[in-house]
């Protein structure tokens, strides 16, 4: 089977039961994406598939043969951090760091959704431009849990990048 991860082609022979997350971690050595709950509840496994954030634990690798997958390894490099990675460092958006790759991939997808004008549960109006207030950021990031509870700093980091984008 062929997969495209972070713009690179990979070949792997995997059992049909393999989740996209296990493909990345166990077969391709891309261990940035983390396994927390393995049931879509914690968000540590969040990756981008064709630009959209999803939980890689709740989907099968075989279903993604023709897709473009982006993981934390594809967002930035140690020498050239993605703006979200830099902002998480600057604002101390983590303690143990386990949820961070998922948080950052999720935030990247979320900023895109906001740019497209997608409303959220806390949006007073469903139409028009989205203003990423702290309440909006928290609601839109609620699929990513942080056991160290670095939430205020995560929101600070994302707010800064959202501001630069605007």
């Amino acid at each position: 089977m062929h997969f495209t991860i972070n713009g690179q082609k990979y070949e792997a022979d995997v059992d049909v039961r393999t989740s996209l997350l296990d493909l990345l971690r166990e077969h391709l050595g891309l261990t940035g994406s983390k396994k927390g709950c393995d049931h879509g509840q914690c968000g540590a496994c969040t990756v981008l598939v064709n630009g959209r954030r999803i939980n890689s634990c709740l989907t099968l690798a075989v279903m993604h043969e023709d897709d473009e997958v982006t993981t934390i390894e594809g967002l930035g490099t140690p020498d050239k951090l993605h703006p979200l990675q830099a902002a998480f460092v600057k604002h101390d958006g983590f303690q143990c760091g386990y949820c961070t790759p998922g948080q950052i991939c999720s935030a990247a997808g979320m900023l895109d959704e906001a740019k497209k004008g997608w409303p959220s549960h806390v949006s007073e109006r469903l139409e028009g431009e989205v203003e990423l207030t702290d309440a909006e950021i928290s609601e839109r990031m609620s699929g990513n849990l942080c056991r160290c509870s670095a939430y205020p700093n995560i929101v600070d980091a994302i707010r800064e990048v959202a501001g630069e984008d605007a």
């Binding site: 879509g40 968000g43 959209r52 954030r53 939980n55 709740l58 997808g109 979320m110 609620s142």
Partner: peptide, 8 residues
């Protein structure tokens, strides 16, 4: 659900 789940 969450943003990730609603995408799927």
């Amino acid at each position: 659900a969450s943003g990730q789940l609603r995408n799927k």
